[in-house]
Design a protein around this nucleic acid. Structure first.
Lengths: 237, 237
DNA sequence: TGTAAGATTTAAGCGCAATCAAATTTAGGT
DNA sequence: ACCTAAATTTGATTGCGCTTAAATCTTACA
């Protein structure tokens, strides 16, 4: 009989807080295809490298992580499945906290982090339904499906586009709350249309045109903006 | 300088999950003024009596519990303050889960229990505001104020009233989910008006009149109904 | 190629909340 | 007053995630 794609039972006992946070961090650090360093993982989790090293061995014994000693850690398919489920819950929570509870988009990460490991499938499904099955978190990160599938997106960095490009912001790719607050104060949030007017040389500032006038942004912030391009050579009106 | 009534900082580090659950359970078991037994506490928490015994000693060392060995445990004022804060969060969560998220009233306790120890003051305040500062949970239990004050209520057991009494249901005083589901199926929820028509002798059933006709209820269920009396001798209309 | 710096792992131990088994205290009935 | 049953505490141990300190591996560079 054909084996239908199933989602893992991440609510089963034996997978606890700490495990979920490790898998979450390792997932994010291995997005580039490279194994995650012990020290990097430890730093993200706020523990010492030796503590992380021990924990990584345990995760490897549980077949959640593929560990090459002294080289780094990757997630096994099973570990990735669980990580994606936690990330799904995190991003659904962020959306819920923002849209339903009215928290600012720079406040939601903290709350979502605390809640992501204690809610269960029923809670997850309820949020999903209330929100109308959203595909993105408030910052624009894509929400993985329950089966671990990642809906396709074609977000591209705004700064990779030629001057004159008009595009719609799809994601502000940072977890720095101060920066997020600044972005929203400038009106730079997903869904807003911008035109790239200038990129000053040698890491200089970037000028964006919006419906509310021009915005000058430092390069480090501007490169966090991911967009969907509308046209590269806007006709003069 | 006059010392204003302050609420404790229950989010401070050093008070963890387990502690909060113990204080919560002890609070409920000591509502009658009697110390809580080690075995009772252990049963409510799903641990062995020996485990509870050790934990109680630790809580006593931290001055959260007043422990008399072999006799039982009471909460200190500080322990009570923390317990009430947890209970406040639990009942606000129940209200939130029911009113905002649409969970049935027999589903909310489970979710609230998982969440009550991980949300913080900001989350608590946000729920309180969204809900319009409710004073009761969906089952009718009163929600303690942030400073540990308990709003006055004058709920009385329906079965303590004489036959013929008309009253409004204020609380269904049980945490048995199956019973709760049955109550709501019968339309017996807080706010509903009922008239006590009969109490059969020797622990027999009870007859209640509602807007939707008569309801016959087992004694054990009927005695869980707390009410506010409207009149003891209703005039025939 | 040797070596030093940095990253990583091992070793020993801690704190917490459990467990089981054994010892102890309490309370009730004759 | 005694003796037994039930409740409770103590003692020894476990699992987990963490710590610091010491040992070991890797890498880059002179």
């Amino acid at each position: 009989m054909a084996r239908r794609r199933e989602h893992v039972d991440v609510d089963r006992v034996g997978i606890n807080d700490a495990t979920l946070h490790y898998l979450d961090v390792i997932y994010r650090l291995t997005q580039d295809g490279q194994p995650a360093n012990t020290t990097e993982i430890a730093a993200k989790l706020g523990v010492t490298p030796s503590g992380a090293s021990v924990m990584l061995r345990r995760l490897a014994e549980r077949k959640l992580v593929q560990l090459t000693p002294y080289k780094g850690a990757l997630l096994t398919p099973q570990g990735q499945q669980i990580a994606l489920r936690t990330i799904r819950r995190h991003r659904l929570l962020e959306m819920f906290l923002h849209k339903v509870m009215g928290f600012a988009w720079d406040e939601v990460d903290e709350h979502a982090h605390a809640l992501e490991t204690v809610i269960n499938e029923q809670f997850e499904d309820r949020m999903d339904e209330i929100l109308g099955h959203p595909t993105r978190c408030p910052h624009g990160h894509v929400i993985p499906a329950k089966d671990g599938t990642i809906p396709p997106v074609n977000d591209v960095p705004l700064l990779d586009q030629p001057i004159g490009t008009t595009a719609v912001i799809r994601c502000i790719d940072t977890d720095n709350n101060a920066w997020l607050r600044y972005f929203s104060e400038q009106g730079l949030v997903p869904g807003v249309q911008v035109t790239l007017r200038d990129i000053a040389p040698y890491g200089g500032p970037v000028v964006l045109e919006t419906d509310n006038g021009n915005i000058i942004l430092g390069r480090n912030l501007a490169e966090l903006i991911l967009v969907e391009v509308i046209n590269h050579h806007p006709a003069k009106s």
